[in-house]
Simulated scan of single mutants.
Amino acid sequence: MPKRLRLTRRFPVSMTNDAYRMLHRFAAEAGLSPDEALCFLFEHFNSVTHPENLTVRLRLFKAELEDRKA
């Protein structure tokens, strides 16, 4: 029997406009609400990310982070 989707945890999230648009685009294409889309992505994180690509992308993001904050 599948687990019931209970959205019991809430947290304030700040994100860039690009990230917000991508989340909403992904949710719309998948036929999900943004909350459901985030649940899906995090519950299946290891299977929807490529470990090597994730490491490279994270390194690039962290290198640019200070410049993006300014």
Rank of each mutant, 00 (worst) to 15 (best):
M1P: 03
M1R: 05
P2E: 05
K3W: 00
R4D: 05
L5T: 06
L5R: 09
R6S: 03
T8E: 14
R9M: 05
F11G: 09
F11A: 07
F11R: 10
V13N: 05
V13I: 13
V13P: 03
S14Q: 10
T16I: 02
T16M: 01
D18W: 05
D18S: 14
Y20Q: 06
Y20T: 01
R21K: 12
R21E: 15
R21Q: 10
M22N: 12
H24V: 04
H24T: 11
H24F: 01
R25K: 15
F26G: 04
A27I: 01
A28Q: 08
E29T: 07
E29Y: 02
E29G: 13
G31E: 02
L32E: 04
L32A: 00
S33W: 04
P34G: 01
E36Q: 10
L38Q: 09
C39F: 06
F40M: 06
L41T: 04
F42R: 11
H44E: 07
H44T: 06
F45I: 08
N46F: 05
N46H: 12
N46V: 03
V48W: 03
V48D: 02
H50A: 13
H50N: 12
H50E: 14
E52L: 11
E52F: 08
E52R: 10
N53G: 08
L54W: 13
T55A: 15
V56T: 10
V56L: 09
L58G: 06
L60P: 00
L60M: 10
F61R: 15
F61N: 13
F61T: 15
K62Y: 14
A63C: 07
A63I: 12
A63Y: 12
E64R: 07
L65Q: 08
L65W: 11
E66L: 13
K69H: 12
A70N: 14
A70C: 02
